[in-house]
Design a protein around this nucleic acid. Structure first.
Ligand SMILES: [Mn+2]
Ligand SMILES: [Mn+2]
Ligand SMILES: [Zn+2]
Ligand SMILES: [Zn+2]
Lengths: 154, 154
DNA sequence: ACCTTAATGAAAATGATTTTCATTAACAAT
DNA sequence: ATTGTTAATGAAAATCATTTTCATTAAGGT
């Protein structure tokens, strides 16, 4: 349920000498309760409903912080704004990739065949490291296409 | 060598009733002669050397057009600006993926896919088509990490 | 309750991209 | 070659996301 009191975040903040503030709890709460990939402004709007005095600047600042901390992930889906999601949440598969409909812009979290996929990815990363003398730290994998209903609309 | 007179582009333009203008030839020429992933402004700067009267606005407009036409590809590598490359060029492998150094920001094109990477793509695309009733049209795959020389600088 | 200083909020600044609009030039028709 | 139509251009202004600045507030250790 509500994630803002998740002791793991608390510990994580404390360890870095960071303070646990109302805006931070509010932002994490919003991200914890959605299945979508929200933009900074969308998060701000949501937070604003409960905490009308929290500013957009603070949302941006904390999204940056949370990303550095490895708590959230930032994506660029091509609509001109960054979008964020909690890396671990009850609402989401853990490791997943994205399927984006170029028609309606919906983003689908995809995690079928995860285990096999992760194993293949590891091998690919190893091969790349070796071939290009590159130490891989992360990846972005997105598939584009047309969803069922958009195909109907053609 | 010089690509601005490539008859295929000419045909492509004509078919759509588009005019073959100086700016368009200049932009294609720049993209055809680089191995890099240039931003709109970088392309503008390069074009400007030979055609000082071509404006940045026109560069943006034509990059958008060329992308729609499937002649160039637009990427987001996380530095806040879009970057473009010719889809087909003598300087580049055709379809390829990217390796991005988070240290020096260099982008490496690679198309020496290991079997696992091909397998991964095939499986995922099949699974996605089936499970999500999605017609896949493309994908973007980028690996982030630290290149050899950046690792030395630590 | 008090202090130190990290964190915040409002406003201004920045930077990339888009829009507006008057002018120019591609190119098809003459 | 000249003309006419209209797509394309360039300059300036507008927009939109994100960042910076700076004075004020409040977390949390004492
Ligand atoms: Mn996701
Ligand atoms: Mn490339
Ligand atoms: Zn769709
Ligand atoms: Zn590097």
């Amino acid at each position: 349920m509500n994630g803002k009191n998740n002791p793991e975040w608390h510990r994580n903040f404390r360890q870095r000498g960071l303070r646990i503030t109302e805006p931070r709890k509010a932002i994490l709460e919003v991200l914890n309760n959605t299945t979508e990939h929200l933009s900074a402004e969308e998060i701000y709007t949501e937070v604003h409903k409960t905490y009308p005095n929290i500013g957009l600047t603070t949302v941006y600042r904390n999204l940056e912080l949370l990303e550095e901390m490895g708590i959230i992930a930032k994506f660029h889906f091509g609509d001109g704004r960054s979008r964020y999601e909690l890396i671990q949440s009850p609402q989401k598969p853990g490791h997943h990739h994205h399927l984006i409909c170029t028609g309606c812009k919906q983003i689908i979290d995809y995690d079928d065949f995860v285990d096999e996929e992760i194993e293949l990815l590891n091998k690919v990363e190893q091969a790349l490291s070796a071939a290009h003398n590159f130490q891989i730290t992360g990846h972005t994998i997105q598939f584009y296409g047309i969803c069922n209903s958009c195909r109907g609309n053609l």
